[in-house]
């Protein structure tokens, strides 16, 4: 497989914040990840692009510990996380914040309780203190206190995404994950979310891994872009390089052509 602009070697720079090596994951006969190698350094925003069903979500769920890989290594701050038990993983989880594709807000809780959830349940903060932080985080994503008591079902898709972003950053995590942050949004709202993501990641000084197939979003929020195809990273490099690369996979994907090395599986009905 082709790989440009390789990641900095451990000898030339500090160890990566997140280092994935030889990661494999299959579901039955289908090999979704087939030896993925990728690294993300402290404060870097890495965007992983790729077609639907190429295993982007599986990759970040493996890093988060929501799925167990078949083999390979995942290091967070130099700590091997594959095979860690629930108790040993608990301190690591405090470093993470995640924005889910469908927002994944809790229906039974109000907006502010959603944002404050990790502070109250995960960190044992008092409700009043957590509420004040939640209101500040809502303000940071452009939402006023008037929506704090509403139920998530009363919000539009864009507002739900912003609440989910506020929830992801509420505990000021060191590492943020964004799963298809702009999917299902109109272009203007998508741009608003992209800007908020950039502001939040920079504001926190966090390390971020985003997955998307929206190239506008990838260019906007990524310092570096990697492309996942057929279970491998087929290209990675600085975001600005993506327009100039002659990698045929990237070229086909970026320009949205049906013809090229990426063959979409089309099954007859």
């Amino acid at each position: 497989m082709i790989s440009e602009a390789p990641i900095r070697s451990p000898g030339s720079s500090p160890a990566p914040k997140i280092a994935v090596t030889g990661l494999r994951k299959s579901f039955g006969q289908k090999q979704v990840l087939d030896g993925v190698d990728i690294a993300c350094h402290t404060g870097e925003s890495l965007v992983i692009i790729g077609g639907s069903g190429t295993g982007k979500s599986v990759l970040i769920k493996c890093i988060l510990g929501l799925m167990r890989p078949d083999s390979g290594s995942i290091g967070i701050d130099g700590v091997e996380t594959v095979g860690l038990g629930r108790a040993a993983r608990a301190p690591l989880m405090l470093k993470f914040g995640m924005l889910f594709q469908g927002s994944a807000l809790f229906d039974s809780l109000s907006v502010w309780e959603n944002v404050a959830f990790g502070l109250i349940q995960g960190r044992g903060m008092k409700r009043q203190e957590a509420r004040e932080i939640a209101l500040r985080k809502l303000a940071a994503v452009g939402l006023g206190p008037e929506i704090a008591a509403l139920s998530p079902a009363e919000l539009s898709g864009g507002m739900q995404k912003r609440v989910a972003l506020a929830r992801a950053i509420a505990a000021e995590p060191e590492i943020l994950f964004f799963d298809e942050p702009t999917t299902g949004l109109d272009p203007i709202m998508a741009d608003v979310i992209n800007r908020l993501i950039v502001d939040c990641v920079r504001g926190l000084g966090a390390t971020a891994i985003s997955i998307t197939h929206d190239m506008t979003s990838a260019r906007k929020i990524g310092d570096r872009i990697a492309m996942l195809h057929a279970g491998h990273i087929v290209w990675q490099g600085p975001a600005a390089e993506i327009e100039r690369t002659d990698n045929p996979f990237v070229d086909q994907f970026v320009h949205g052509r049906a013809e090229g090395p990426i063959q979409m599986e089309v099954r007859a009905a």
């Binding site: 510990g65 929501l66 608990a90 989880m93 469908g102 994944a104 229906d107 959830f117």
Partner: peptide
């Protein structure tokens, strides 16, 4: 089940809640 398919259960885990 709805919480599972809408990733709310995964969200609980990422928010340090078992």
């Amino acid at each position: 089940g709805t919480m599972r398919v809408t990733e709310q259960i995964d969200a609980l885990t990422t928010l340090s809640t078992d």
